[in-house]
């Protein structure tokens, strides 16, 4: 494992202009993705995880503006000329989207969608690209790839489409794969297959993976590190095991406690986090979680917490972190993990 991380996000802010004001979707986030590592990004809807991924991929709408740095192998994607960036996206960083039914072009055969990237970005010949496409489809577990190449997207099931999407993303052998809620549109049995596939491919290829999900269980067993986002900020980052076994940020702790599990006591009420996300156009000063946190003191708002090392490879931005031994109830997917 090389020391230099594949992706370094430095003080990234992504603000989106709306009629109601500027939405601070991502507000000063710094994050590393190491080589050959799987990083999970979790947070509830509106926490900024998707916007962060889109900022890295240059997919934000024109009315959004970014500041900070997104360093991919040392080069800042936000300031690189468009032509050079086009060489990185798709080829070195690839993305798998949420809904495979929407992300594939319905009037184009799988073959062209799968080989287009290789032919355009790598200059592969048609027959070579076809052979490669067959290999890719087998790698992602699509049966009868010969026939599938001739199919249109609507002739495949949802799970097959997502496998094809992953094959397309892998076609140019990227160094980093970003999967933005890759299983949200799929049913539960297929979800697991797709997630296990992503993890297997990531390990086999020694590639880096960013797995974005609102579902803690999705991330729990399949990533090396995990980042928890709340209202555009990073709450906690660390080795997956250590974050799930011993969360230090009050938000992560509350989130894990609110997750139902099969071995909960039967009649115990579900624990909730009271309140809702702060107004993204006008967030509170200091820690974003103050309105919902049980342990708020004045210094949470001013000066507010900053990211601090709280354990081995474990950082949290909390002025009054949860005690190291305070273990939340277990998560459904198994925080003990496989």
């Amino acid at each position: 494992m090389s020391a230099e991380p594949v992706l370094q996000v430095r003080n990234l802010r992504a603000h989106i202009g709306t009629a109601r004001g500027v939405v601070r979707a991502v507000d000063d986030v710094s994050l590393d993705v190491d080589r050959a590592q799987a990083l999970g990004v979790v947070g509830e809807s509106g926490s900024g995880k998707s916007v962060m991924a889109k900022a890295v991929m240059g997919l934000l709408p024109p009315r959004a503006a970014c500041s900070g740095e997104v360093l991919f192998e040392g080069r800042d994607l936000l300031s690189l000329p468009r032509k050079e960036r086009a060489q990185i996206w798709g080829k070195q960083i690839a993305m798998v989207f949420q809904d495979p039914g929407r992300s594939l072009n319905p009037v184009v055969r799988i073959e062209r969608q799968l080989t287009e990237g290789m032919r355009r970005l790598l200059g592969t010949s048609r027959s070579e690209a076809r052979g490669k496409a067959l290999e890719l489809l087998s790698e992602v577990g699509v049966p009868d790839p010969e026939r599938r190449l001739r199919n249109y997207p609507h002739e495949l099931s949802g799970g097959m489409r997502q496998r094809v999407m992953i094959a397309i993303a892998l076609a140019c052998e990227p160094d980093l794969l970003i999967a933005d809620e890759p299983t949200t549109a799929l049913d539960v049995t297929i979800q697991r297959q797709i997630l296990d596939l992503l993890r297997r491919v990531q390990r086999d290829r020694g590639m880096s993976l960013v797995l974005i999900s609102h579902d803690l269980a999705v991330v729990a067993g399949r990533t090396d590190r995990v980042a928890v986002m709340y209202a555009g900020r990073l709450a906690e980052v660390g080795a997956t095991r250590s974050v799930f076994d011993s969360p230090r940020h009050r938000y992560t702790h509350a989130l894990l406690e609110a997750t139902p599990a099969l071995d909960h006591e039967r009649n115990a009420p579900l624990r909730l986090i009271p309140g809702s996300l702060p107004d993204p156009t006008d967030p509170p000063p200091g820690c974003r979680f103050t309105a919902r946190c049980a342990q708020v003191e004045d210094d949470c708002r001013d000066p507010g917490p900053s990211m601090a090392l709280v354990g081995a490879d474990h950082y949290a931005a909390c002025t009054r972190p949860v005690a190291a031994g305070d273990v939340p109830l277990p998560v459904g997917g198994g925080s003990g993990g496989r």
Binding site: M57, K83, Q87, G90, F97, R102, S103, V108
Partner: peptide, 24 residues
């Protein structure tokens, strides 16, 4: 749609996107 965004990211021009991705 995502495939249009992807084509744009790969450096496809407006003409190509309109004719090959959207028109069909």
């Amino acid at each position: 749609r995502e495939f249009v965004l992807a084509a744009r990211n790969m450096g496809a021009g407006h003409r190509r996107i309109l004719l090959k991705e959207i028109l069909p």
